[in-house]
Design a protein around this nucleic acid. Structure first.
Lengths: 121, 121
DNA sequence: ACAAGTACTTACCCTAAAGTATGTATCTAT
DNA sequence: ATAGATACATACTTTAGGGTAAGTACTTGT
């Protein structure tokens, strides 16, 4: 969320890469350590903020909402707040977000495979 | 490549997360902006260092070799150097690396779909 | 009266990652 | 003689992301 130096050559190249490389496009949206992990936890259906928090104990609250907001503004997740007190806020995947499930699933299967290999040694 | 503060609570939590969350495991290996992009370009078969460089103009050389070395030491890519001059070095996916192709492919398809949606508007 | 839970926000700091710039050794082409 | 290509390496600086800690507003439970 910082201004981009428009004079930068690498920024021009990034724009170019974005136009032609599909993976670059993906990385601009979820290319960050936490986002796929968050999406993974959203994959099981709507989930409350506090539940995500507990599901990912290694993330700090600041970083968690920060990414949730970004995912929301990128149209990948949908926030729904019930006007009650204490607040009841759930997050779920949008249609685009659901489209990422093959990616997340592929990640999970790879991890499970690799872990199995490690254990054999 | 820096020492980890072992007293940190979040590091403990990260270890815990690694044990149970498969996506976290993946992110520890390729959870970085450039790695999936590099792997994408390696997916078409063995490729020379300079070809990768040209294929990803937005990356700096420093960052590129840095990641190639890391991917190599993580057993995801294999480096092969012909002892000629000028040097002839190729990189290709290892078996584990190839196992990531479903992830990369899923990313690419998603991106292509999303771009198509954007264009319609 | 006080703690705890809800879903955040905000200010401040720290570090890991990335960027900039330059150098190396060897060969070929102009 | 000089430039360009090869595949890096290395010192130095910048920045973006993440971590720490505290606060908010309102309610329920003890």
């Amino acid at each position: 969320m910082t201004a981009i130096k428009e004079t930068s050559v690498i920024q021009e190249n990034k724009q170019y890469a974005l136009d032609i490389c599909p993976v670059t496009y993906v990385m601009e949206k979820i290319g960050n350590y936490w986002k796929p992990i968050i999406l993974y936890h959203l994959s099981k259906g709507p989930i409350r903020y506090s539940e995500i928090k507990r599901a990912i104990p290694a993330i700090t609250e600041k970083v968690l909402i920060q990414h949730l907001k970004q995912l929301e503004s990128d149209g990948l997740v949908i926030r729904k707040a019930k006007p009650v007190v204490p607040p009841y806020v759930t997050y779920k995947l949008s249609k685009s977000g659901k489209g990422l499930m093959p990616v997340i699933d592929a990640m999970a299967s790879w991890a499970i495979n690799e872990r199995a290999k490690e254990d054999k040694q």
